[in-house]
Structures are given as C-alpha cells and as structure tokens.
Design a protein around this nucleic acid. Structure first.
Lengths: 148, 148
DNA sequence: TCAAATGTAACTACCGTAGTAACACACTAG
DNA sequence: CTAGTGTGTTACTACGGTAGTTACATTTGA
C-alpha cells in the first residue's frame, strides 16, 4: 500500500505558510486551497506544532505560522511529524519458531527494509519547504510565459 | 502508514520454496511456517505466479515451486508483484486550481517522492531471494554454535 | 463584550487487509 | 478409472486506519 495523504497535505500547508511571510493563515483559508475540511487542517497543524514546525496564534486575527525558517524544515521532518511507524510492515502473526525460516526471516528481512527506508529518508531530507515553494514559483512563471 | 504484510510474507514463502530444492511445497505447510491460513498463502502465490516468479503443480503431490532461480528474483520483483501503487499518496480531493500552490504542489512534490521511491527500490533490487535464504542459514548456524 | 479563530473530542463512512469457509477443478497414485 | 489430494478462486466477515463532519470550550483582538 501507500502512506496516508497526510504527508502531501502537510507539505501543502507549510508551503502556504511560507508564502504568507509571517502573516497568520487560518485553517479555513488553507482548507480552501487543499480542498478539505478546516478541522482536518487543524488536526495536521496540531501534529506539526507538536514537532516544533509550526505555531498558532489563537483568537481573532489568529492562524498558523511557521515556527522556524522554511529552509530549515526538511521534508523528512514533515514526514516524521505526520506519518508514524515504518514503511515496511512485517507479518501479522508471529512466524513459527519451529521452522528455521520462521525463526530468522524477520530479522533477515529487516536488514534490507531498514536500508530501503533509510534510502527513502535521505531523499526526503535533501529537500526543504523553501525548495518546494521555489519550485512552485518556477512552475507558475513558466506556465504564465508559455500561455502568453 | 506502512505497506501491507504481503511483502514480508511473500519473501517468507519464496525462501521456503527455495529451501525445498524443487520439491513442491503445499500451501498448508507454508501456512504453518508463516502462521496464517492456507488460503492466504494461495492468494499470495497467485500474485507471485502472475508475475512469473512461481508456478504450481495441481493435484495430489502438488504444491508451489519457484519458476526461476532464486538468485534471479530480487526483492523488488517480489515487492512489485504483491504491492500495488506508489509509496506516497497525494491529496484525496484535488487541490484548488485557483491557488498557485494548489495548482503546482502535486507536480512539485512528485519530483521528490519519485526520487525517494526510486531510492527505496534500488535497495530492494540489490538483494535476491537467494541472499535471504543464505542469511537465514548464517543466522541459524550462528545461534546453534553460540547456544552450544 | 462580541466576534473570530484555534484545539480537541466525538462520530460516521469508507477502504484495504487478512482471516475464514466453501467448492469446482486438476492431477496423481494406486 | 476412481479416490483422494491440493490448487485456484470467490464470497463473506472482522478489524483498523483515514478523513470528513459536527460540535463546543477556550483564547484573543477590536
């Protein structure tokens, strides 16, 4: 299977926050861009805040803000904030301890799945929220000029 | 989230088949080692057969067999045979086309998620079912000698 | 004080996975 | 040729996670 959509939506949210340049952004505004319910956005923002990536300003005129520079927030930080557990799942029930393969398969397999997950995480660590916003802007101007 | 347990179980199954050295293995025997229901094993074997990794011998004395050398079956082959779709999911609903971020975020994000998935797949491609069985045997003898 | 906005808890609907039973079909041994 | 073994496949159930939705207490600015 695949991850939840939380990672993609979280990156989307953070890109919007970076674009607002310090102005608090409401969950309702974000929900409009993401095309979901404001409470879903607030749930994600709760996870991101717990990870120290965002903060919120309560009350009227409030909203969400980045807690640190977008260039210091890697996609791996985001991934870990909103997705829990390992990418690869092992057996549901424990394999038979009476069989050599049953005894060893999970330990052996873990070597490879751990390496695979680490390789994936290295790619995510190589890009930041600032990079994402920059790419969005490049694509926007490219489409504008080609459409004109 | 994480993948299903199908990948781990499929590797387990193939390791057992390789260990049997050409003797057909019944789904009931495999289910005993994996600790699941024979029909679950047959379902997995169906997917592996469709991918050309295993074959089955029907009737009495029948069972499952590897369709090619274990050294030619990479864990990536197995992964693709039993897990479908991409590792990373995008938004459920389509982001707002009225917002620059909404318009571009998925295309931009895909660059990174594709790279991450490719990195993961490279790791899986680097190991074969033959490697897994060899590792199982190494661990078995290590435990025997240390226990003695 | 009023209105705006968050944080959070419930509840629902939905989907994928795995466990289970059932049965037609294929094959092999005898 | 027949009895028995094992596959392939379908249908059904139970379970868990995700996300959409509503609701409400709480905080804060004007």
């Amino acid at each position: 299977m695949s991850t939840s959509s939380r990672f993609a939506v979280a990156v989307h949210i953070l890109t919007l926050l970076e674009m607002s340049e310090g102005e608090p952004v409401t969950s309702e505004y974000v929900a409009g861009s993401v095309n979901t319910h404001p409470a879903v956005v607030r749930r994600l923002l709760g996870m991101l805040a717990k990870a120290g990536i965002t903060t919120s300003q309560l009350g009227a005129g409030g909203g969400a803000l980045l807690a640190k520079a977008a260039a210091d927030v890697t996609l791996l930080d985001v991934f870990r904030a909103v997705e829990e557990g390992d990418v690869f799942a092992m057996h549901h029930g424990r394999p038979s301890p009476a069989c050599p393969v049953g005894r060893q398969i999970q330990g052996v397999l873990e070597v490879t799945t751990d390496a695979a997950q680490r390789a994936l995480e290295e790619q995510l660590a190589a890009r930041t929220v600032a990079d994402i916003l920059a790419d969005v802007r490049v694509r926007e101007s490219a489409e504008c000029s080609s459409a004109a």
